[in-house]
Design a protein around this nucleic acid. Structure first.
Lengths: 275, 275
DNA sequence: ACTTGTGAACAGGTTCACAGCA
DNA sequence: TGCTGTGAACCTGTTCACAAGT
């Protein structure tokens, strides 16, 4: 597997912190909502509440972009929307292909959040010949054989993989070979990619497992004790605790909000793992 | 705002770091694969490679769980699978309900990764009366009216929200009122929940936006300069960039993941800590 | 020999608190 | 007066490197 250890080539240190980048979409969404309500300006306190973060963090984040606010007043909504969009690269058109049109792929194809954010689904690709031509989200599914041509013809640089785990690496390799340099992976598999290619993974079951961890902890707390019971049972049960082999991937994120005053959601770290 | 600023410095305790918890599912998946291949033991180096992290981090993570390895040898696969499963609370059955059976909800209902990890879909709920009774993933969709009863009858404590953004908060409130204490939110909205309830969110468009950011950066780098060009244009364009994304986010779907998270800004997590 | 387990250095991110400016 | 912008403290997480076992 790729061993690209070069994570962050110091050379680019002038950049915006990853944690901040990961929050920009959040701010953008909150700002877009304000914009639609024709709100002209917003304070860091208000915007932070809408985005679910605390104001100090928000101000710090914005400070990395530049000084776009006005002391004593707040931020100009429209101006900020533009600046953040530009910073994220959303002012340009990003054609993307979705490979693997199963339940999830179809859901993604129908997701409105793409188009409204500068992303354009250039093609839906699936390995099943029977699906070819079938319309999904108003667009015909194309066969995997066309993959390279589609990517070249549309200048696609971002690919979404929603195939079964077993096909993911192969699809990934073809996407990369065809020129894709950013991949959003939904398959529960660790993908190996050459240096220079970004991969972000999303795994539905991982999120649930993390919730289960905290849920379990809540229950134990309530009970008062901690007796993590089973210790003797461990050995015995160990043999078949697991089964199926598909599952999770990595991704963290969490949010937390509170009702009554303050609150802070949390931090999230991006992780684009380098091969 | 900063009223009761009672810091909670001493709150730290025997807990496992959030970042570590977020990686446990990854290790578990890799271990499960090894287990299926009947591999008896594995070194931190091998397992780390399979999980996509570096070995030092993996060993550090495991050290929080206890000393489950054998120096000079490695870790016993079966034993570790059990220990991690137990730590995550996966040795028990977690009934979950999925609210909002659109494309994404259906995809989630069909997702095999749930069942194979101790999660059981107890019910599929949707507000559309026409969907009631319709089988999805082999199970009839039930109407929202039944929500409270379903949760009570099945002892559900984890809920998944895959409704449109507009309905999310309302659904969330009902889930919480009915007893749910952990929520996985796919709707592109910030949810407010009372203390003690965990919310994790997954937003697909956010992941894509983060990829776009890095993709844009790559392009610029290639071009040689860093000149974030358009600076003068900014001012001019700012005025009406606005509408760009009015389509709004209606459909739900999304995913987002990343590294770690959760933690409390202020008085958040009551600090779980079993003595 | 070989690999774990971990103190300690390091890095990055968050929060504080206040100076600076409209 | 009010709110932004930010240095500095603080805290969490990562990496190093080696002592401790087997």
């Amino acid at each position: 597997m790729a061993t690209g250890r070069t994570h962050r080539p110091a050379t680019r240190s002038r950049g915006i912190p990853e944690a901040t980048v990961a929050r920009l979409p959040l701010y953008l969404r909150a700002l877009t909502a304000l914009s639609e309500r024709s709100v002209p300006t917003v304070s860091s306190e208000e915007l932070a509440a809408a985005a679910g973060v605390n104001s100090a963090k928000l101000r710090k984040d914005f400070s990395y972009l530049g000084s776009y606010g006005t002391r004593g007043v707040g931020y100009d909504v429209e101006y900020l929307v533009y600046q953040i969009s530009r910073e994220l690269g959303l002012t340009q058109d990003w054609p993307v292909v979705i490979v693997g049109i199963g339940n999830l792929g179809a859901a993604l194809a129908n997701y409105g959040g793409f188009a409204s954010r500068g992303f354009r689904v250039a093609a839906l690709i699936d390995a099943d010949p029977n699906m070819a031509g079938t319309p999904v989200a108003g667009m015909p599914v194309q066969h995997t054989d066309e993959l390279e041509k589609i990517i070249a013809d549309n200048g696609v640089s971002i690919g979404v993989i929603s195939t079964p785990a077993g096909a993911a690496q192969q699809v990934c390799d073809r996407l990369v070979a065809a020129g894709v340099t950013s991949i959003l992976n939904f398959a529960p598999t660790v993908l190996s990619v050459p240096d220079g290619v970004d991969v972000r993974k999303v795994d539905l079951s991982i999120e649930l497992q993390i919730l289960a961890f905290h849920e379990q902890r809540k229950a134990g707390e309530e009970a008062g004790a901690e007796a993590v019971v089973a210790d003797a049972v461990a050995e015995a049960a160990a043999a078949d605790v697991t089964a199926a082999g598909s599952a999770a991937e990595a991704a963290p994120t969490a949010a937390r909000a509170e009702n009554t005053d303050r609150k802070g959601p949390d931090g999230d770290v991006p992780a684009v793992m380098p091969a």
